[in-house]
Design a protein around this nucleic acid. Structure first.
Lengths: 247, 247
DNA sequence: GGGGAGAGATGCCGC
DNA sequence: GCGGCATTTCTCCCC
């Protein structure tokens, strides 16, 4: 691909806020929050309408290099070769991609105003517990959600049958040491705020690591096995549809 | 673009382990670790040689939907339309992309064995402290790195001029509440392991949040302002090259 | 493979 | 903007 053609198409697409995709043999230098260098290799490079830039290797889920929104991108040629220079003045970041060879370039104007609807998050879990407090234990009564915000980011705050304050921390997957320290922080915060000693801490999750469970016990907290709503629901149906649905 | 052509090119590229890039008006359903639905919109879809799949909207840094390595991808047409079906049996994940319209399709074989060299990580910070212990304080002496692993994931373990044990936790950016709870966990672990009471905890970072600093004081720990090596080094040079380097 | 923790994390919401 | 925290986090290291 000729440099002039490449630059022409590139500039026009950037100007029109199209999505730019091209494949190139290139090397990448980054400077900003850290400093990095990526030697020569063939990659896919994407520039989005909002000026986000992604450099993807042929393997892996995440971009090996990237520039965030608010960057400017310019194709330049000098004695040393052809470069894609990206600058983000606000974040004080800079990237230089040396382009050895372009395999293809495509630009396209994309319209998309949709946003993702997601079920099975931690928020969904705490909502579920608010609706079905018996998932924690018989006699557990969540207090008004508004109450919570005053005392921090506690997932669910409530009282047990003996009228003790109960703090519930939810994890959608495996609860780890960090989850226990988090719960501990909330309990201590609440103790100092309320001046009450008897506050129970409960960790609600589908699973917990052994070390986390030990730490939980050491601190007198409790674990409740709770599955996030919808989580793998389809796959838990025995037999039948499952076999066809998942190879 | 004709369906037959699309499918033919697609299948051939998957078979040859090429990188597949196409733009489409589509909707996405995902089921696995959670459940999600994304209504119609125009997106960029990428399938890599290692079977990773990415769905990118025209804005944002991260993919709105994705399937991880180990997935199979198949284009199918039925009464309801054309679909890209991706399945990951191991992770029990499933994705269905309804393809309303294809704007373009490109496939390319990419060769890339390079890996990123990065400077300015937390590891670099602890290495720097090991080399220049005076960054923590005069008289601070780090102990052998091997010592550390036995007692956990402490960044730097050492002794002060009075021979007290000192645990240093490094953060490359702003130290937050979580960093303090982490340090606290290490100090407590070490106290119980060593049976020593006087263990100092030091948080080394370029910055700390007000709440984290308060909690640090409450627990008798200390903060040391330490910059990660190379971090924004270039941009800290006054004047001169900076002005040209960053717009 | 699980556990633990960092990341140029990103993204969301709150103040 | 910062702060606090979840994330289909992802990635790496180590046991």
């Amino acid at each position: 691909m000729e440099f002039d053609d490449f630059k022409k198409q590139f500039d026009k697409a950037i100007d029109r806020k199209e999505t730019v995709v091209f494949s190139a043999d290139c090397s990448v230098c980054y400077s900003g929050r850290a400093e990095s260098h990526l030697p020569d290799g063939e990659r896919l490079i994407i520039i989005k309408a909002d000026s986000n830039l992604l450099v993807h290797q042929p393997k892996g889920t995440s971009p090996i290099n990237y520039m965030k929104q608010g960057s400017t991108h310019q194709v330049v040629a000098n004695d040393e070769g052809v470069f894609l220079e990206s600058k983000n003045p606000l974040l004080k970041e800079h990237m230089e991609i040396k382009l050895n060879k372009i395999h293809f370039l495509k630009t396209v104007k994309l319209e998309d105003n949709a946003s993702l609807a997601l079920a099975g998050s931690e928020k969904d879990m705490s909502d579920m517990i608010m609706r079905k407090p018996e998932l924690i234990e018989s006699g557990f009564r969540p207090v008004d959600r508004e109450e919570q915000t005053k005392y921090g980011f506690v997932d669910v705050l409530g009282t047990d049958s003996a009228n003790n304050l109960v703090i519930v921390e939810c994890k959608r997957y495996i609860a780890d040491l960090q989850a226990v320290t988090q719960l501990r922080r909330y309990v201590e915060k609440m103790i100092s705020l309320k001046g009450i000693k008897n506050i129970r801490g409960i960790l609600a999750a589908p699973k917990i690591t052994p070390n986390a469970e030990q730490m939980l016990k050491d601190w007198g907290f409790e674990f409740r096995k709770v599955e996030p709503p919808n989580y793998l629901e389809r796959h838990k149906k025995k037999q039948g549809k499952l076999d066809k649905f998942i190879a």
